[in-house]
């Protein structure tokens, strides 16, 4: 069983993964803490299981995921904050 940490935006469609961390990301500058908090409020917490369900047309952006039975659309930059370990297929 591999436990390599992979950011969400690099996961393939259909992948299931467990969140291990919400990392900081320079993209959001001083808003980064706010974005982290909002992600957590929406249920993106370490330990939660998510599944990648689809991508947008251009550059696989945004990415759609399901978590706690709810679907969300996230940009690659937001998804990059979410560090996961992939479940074996």
């Amino acid at each position: 069983m591999s436990h390599t940490a992979t950011p969400l935006h690099l996961l393939p469609k259909g992948a299931r993964a467990t969140i291990v961390d919400i990392a900081s990301h320079s993209h959001f500058g001083e808003l980064d803490a706010q974005v982290t908090l909002r992600l957590k409020e929406l249920g993106f917490l370490p330990g939660a299981v998510l599944q990648v369900i689809g991508f947008g047309l251009f550059g696989a952006d945004p990415v759609a995921v399901r978590i706690n039975g709810t679907k969300f659309g996230l940009r690659r930059s937001e998804a990059a904050k979410i560090i996961t370990t992939v479940h074996p297929a």
Partner: peptide
């Protein structure tokens, strides 16, 4: 840049 999308579907 810098503002999240975070859209519930």
């Amino acid at each position: 840049q810098g503002f999240p999308l975070l859209l519930e579907l």
